[in-house]
Design a protein around this nucleic acid. Structure first.
Lengths: 191, 191
DNA sequence: TACGGTGACGTTACCAAGTCACATCACTTC
DNA sequence: GAAGTGATGTGACTTGGTAACGTCACCGTA
């Protein structure tokens, strides 16, 4: 017999999402989350997450890494926008179908809390920044890299929105290409 | 004799900026701020600001309004990017020289606190959104409006950065035009 | 088999952010 | 001059977050 149930971290996340969906983010206590995750305590929660907010965004640094690696491995001949496209492909293909429903619920919870929207905006900015950094490493000039990264992140979030709103079986991958395409035409309209 | 000193709000802001600069954001207490602002208390602080963070960002909704109005009043013939340029002109000209040093200090304080960077990212997103909304009202399509607004906000923040870093007497206005111009050429490089 | 880590958790106590109900009192208004 | 109004104070409370310290199954090793 193990002394504790395994997968504490995952249980905490599940419990948090459940409670946030039931009662809203602000109305649920860290103690409640820990309790529902199997009789745990506040302290244990904060050993796994720095924040009450972070329980919904944990492990998102991996997105930065995926995008950055895709860009680093892009062929020499690739244009800036092509590199962004490859980054989107890499990121989107890491989202399996089962994460769709989770994403849906997550979005609803975040939409009801200013505090969570703040964290979300911050994570988004971080993603954009690390993508821009990867592009700069590939020789793209600062401002162009910033703009291209912004475009990529925008495409990803837009696609994620559509993916979690829709019911059809298209993969996230398809949506990122769709939105990225629309953004590129919007870009040409603008310029 | 008045019962209380006037301009409580301004005194709170001054005290907060001073203390944050001296000791850092996290190390200073709301009680300290209120105390330095003239023997006030925590409760009074929270009557003026919803947050400890908000004391540094209060009154920023006015930026949204300035930009929105400039866009609403732009001539019928103006292109999307020209409307953004007018919004930038309007916003930049509302910053007098004395706000430069304040901005400098503010930037330093924010750069040292993740919590403040989060709030900053959120405010930036809000500014972008209200600018995009104003553009949509003028008939610009959704994605184009979003991109153009992002470009505008990026120009403003970039210009503000340079303005508060530099020592020369150029006005913020000059910097926004400079950065906006650079962004437009970056845009054409990208497309 | 005995034994000394180690890792994951609990307990307790604490600080600071934020909220709320209620009190105070100069100033205004009728 | 009495009754309101508005900006503040007081005190008590909840909750996020930190820190010091204790507990105990498990693991490796002699």
């Amino acid at each position: 017999m193990a002394r504790w149930e395994p997968n504490t971290r995952e249980r905490l996340i599940r419990a948090a999402v459940e409670l946030f969906a039931e009662q809203g983010y602000e109305a649920t206590t860290v103690n409640e989350i820990a309790e529902r995750a199997g009789g745990l305590t506040k302290t244990t929660f904060f050993r796994h997450f720095t924040d009450k907010r972070e329980v919904l965004f944990a492990g998102q640094e991996i997105h930065s890494r995926i995008m950055a690696e895709a860009i680093a491995e892009a062929p020499e001949s690739a244009t800036t926008l092509e590199m962004v496209g490859l980054a989107l492909d890499g990121l989107a293909s890491s989202f399996t179908e089962d994460r769709r429903e989770i994403g849906r619920r997550l979005r609803a919870v975040i939409a009801n809390s200013a505090e969570l929207q703040e964290r979300s905006a911050f994570k988004r900015a971080a993603l954009s920044e690390s993508m821009a950094q990867a592009l700069r490493t590939r020789g793209v000039s600062e401002l162009v890299a910033d703009l291209a990264a912004e475009l990529g992140v925008r495409a990803f979030y837009g696609a994620f929105d559509r993916w979690t709103s829709a019911a059809d079986p298209r993969t996230l991958d398809a949506y990122t290409r769709e939105v990225f395409g629309e953004l590129k035409t919007a870009l040409s309209v603008l310029g």
